[in-house]
């Protein structure tokens, strides 16, 4: 993005292409994003899973997912989140709770393929593991030796509990075992299960060991899943880092250390580096006008917020409040494309398309769930209408130009939003 006016943002066409198309470019890792910590903050680099900075980038053998595959997987994730939210809100609205031996079939969400990854250290001495970064689920897990049943291929060595002097299984009787959504018991050892909406799953021992977040910072006795049976669409990541609001998540486990505060930033380009910070030091740049309440009564795991309106080109769209309050809104690091209630999306699409038509941009075919696309062939820079998401309390997310357009190619650059099917999805 070269610049931003009140009603439009300028976007360089060459900057539009996300991974995997730009994977041949070099990694742009600035010094400030390398592992580090201050007295009140621990910082880890975040990179795009398929971008040139990813430790997994060499593992693909040139077989990167297509945009259609990325968007189809994203739709799986969105659907599974909606199924889970529907289940939990139905329960909270007064359905009698049964004494259930089994837990909800979907304890997490489909992973998708457009996720970002971070590298963690685990064990003593610490091994390095690149894991999927997920604010939409709680339990952290990695594939483990001896991989009793099945493991998918991963880029790094499997975590081997026998080589860690600080590893211990958690017993079935331990309170921590009760924190799991899906649990079992074998020989007195607590078993965990996570199953995602696309059929991917991981099962194994619920254990504890030292988690290293930076060269200076470690969490002793961190509880995680040591996966002995793992199948699914994990790419070649070693596992997953759960950052939700549930008891097993990293921010909740490390609450005493970091005060339940963390922050992340995703870079504009797939060749860039973002960060994941833990601790109160993440906060100084956030003024009250940039914050919105976390609506914790809506359900577990997810970070619910109150979306109240949308501006396109600086103008507030006429969307009744009930359109947003009927369904609610979550912020999810693992979903690629923002999903809006049908009426809100329809209004956004109409205003966006109208502004693009005024500028004379040529339309292009739809790309999977993205139905408002343009052909920018022959252009070096385009002017697109600004899009702002407005939240309870007055916070505004003025979407960066790199987040307004999702481009498969120069000739197929689309509005990076999609509509839900039903008003109450």
């Amino acid at each position: 993005a070269a610049g931003r006016g009140h009603d439009h943002a300028m976007l360089r066409v060459e900057d539009m292409l996300p991974a995997p198309s730009s994977s041949s470019s070099s990694c742009d890792m600035s010094r400030e994003h390398k592992h580090g910590a201050t007295s009140s903050r621990t910082r880890m680099p975040i990179v795009h899973r398929h971008g040139p900075c990813s430790p997994l980038a060499d593992a693909h053998d040139g077989k990167l997912p297509s945009h259609e595959e990325i968007l189809a997987a994203d739709q799986n994730r969105a659907k599974s989140i909606q199924r889970r939210v529907s289940t939990t809100t139905t329960v909270s609205r007064g359905k009698p709770k049964r004494n259930r031996p089994s837990l909800p079939a979907s304890s997490g969400s489909a992973l998708g393929t457009g996720n970002y990854v971070v590298t963690i250290g685990l064990g003593t001495p610490a091994g390095r593991y690149t894991v999927v970064f997920d604010t939409g689920s709680d339990t952290t897990w990695v594939q483990c030796e001896p991989c009793v049943v099945v493991c998918y291929k991963q880029q790094e060595k499997l975590f081997d509990p026998a080589r860690s002097s600080t590893y211990a299984n958690i017993s079935c009787a331990a309170p921590a075992c009760s924190d799991l959504y899906i649990k079992g018991c074998s020989g007195g050892h607590c078993l965990y299960g996570v199953q995602y909406g696309d059929g991917s799953y991981s099962i194994g021992f619920f254990a504890m060991d030292t988690l290293t977040l930076s060269s200076y910072d470690a969490i002793k006795g961190f509880r995680f899943g040591c996966g002995e049976r793992n199948e699914g669409l994990y790419g070649e990541a070693a596992g997953l880092l759960g950052l939700g609001r549930g008891k097993t998540s990293l921010p909740v486990q490390a609450y005493d250390k970091y005060g339940g505060v963390f922050a992340h930033c995703f870079p504009a380009r797939s060749s860039g580096t973002g960060y994941l910070d833990f601790g109160p030091g993440s906060l100084p740049a956030v003024s009250a006008k940039l914050t919105t309440p976390m609506l914790v009564d809506n359900g577990p795991t997810f970070y619910y917020v109150g979306l109240t309106g949308i501006r396109v080109g600086g103008k507030l769209l006429s969307i009744p409040q009930s359109v947003f309050t009927t369904s609610g809104t979550i912020v999810d690091s693992g979903t690629v494309i923002t999903r809006l209630p049908p009426a809100a999306y329809s209004s956004l699409r109409s205003a966006f398309a109208s502004a693009m038509a005024e500028r004379g941009y040529k339309k292009a075919p739809a790309l999977s769930l993205l139905d408002t696309c343009y052909d920018f062939t022959g252009m070096s820079e385009v002017a697109i209408p600004t899009v702002s998401l407005l939240f309870q309390g007055g916070a505004s997310l003025d979407v960066h130009a790199s987040g307004i357009i999702y481009a498969a190619s120069v000739s197929q650059a689309c509005l990076g939003f999609a509509g839900n099917k039903e008003d109450d999805d």
Binding site: C265, F266, A268, A344, F391, S402, G416
Partner: peptide
């Protein structure tokens, strides 16, 4: 449920404070 996805969060510092129950959006954070 509506979902704010990672494409729209690019370059924003997204801050989660579980204790204070707030989510913050800082522009131009990376």
């Amino acid at each position: 449920v509506g979902i704010v996805g990672n494409t729209q969060l690019k370059t924003f510092g997204v801050v989660y404070d579980i204790g204070k129950k707030v989510v913050g959006f800082c522009p131009g954070a990376c």
